[in-house]
Amino acid sequence: MLFRVTPDSPVPLGEQIAACVRGAIADGSARPGERLPPARSLAGSLGVNVHTVLRGYQRLRDEGLVELRRGRGTVVTGRTDAPGLARLLTLAAELVAEARALGVDDEEILRLVSSQLPTAAGEPGPP
């Protein structure tokens, strides 16, 4: 699993780490059961705080993409829809980042998404 982070990016480091894992699950390079590196060693390698890594891992747990397993640490979940879910979460994160960059506030983002719900048939259109 490849992790790339840029400290001076506007995206928080924990979110950058989570995005790397989502990407790896989405493109199939991280398969179900694959172990994430222990937070401490990943933090050491990337030169970031352990809590930053743990915050990223916690997000992934909340999203249902990874789970804690006794003796194996944090692993990619076995659910078959994990790659699809990871792709969806990546799109959502990109949508929010794009909207924030344009100065759109959170209320507006929610309204924007729900306005698409009645018309969209499935595939999201071009950005």
Partner: peptide
């Protein structure tokens, strides 16, 4: 190609 200032790690069992 890495960006200046970018940190990167690859790890696998």
């Amino acid at each position: 190609r890495l960006e200046p200032g970018e940190s990167a790690v690859w790890s696998r069992h």
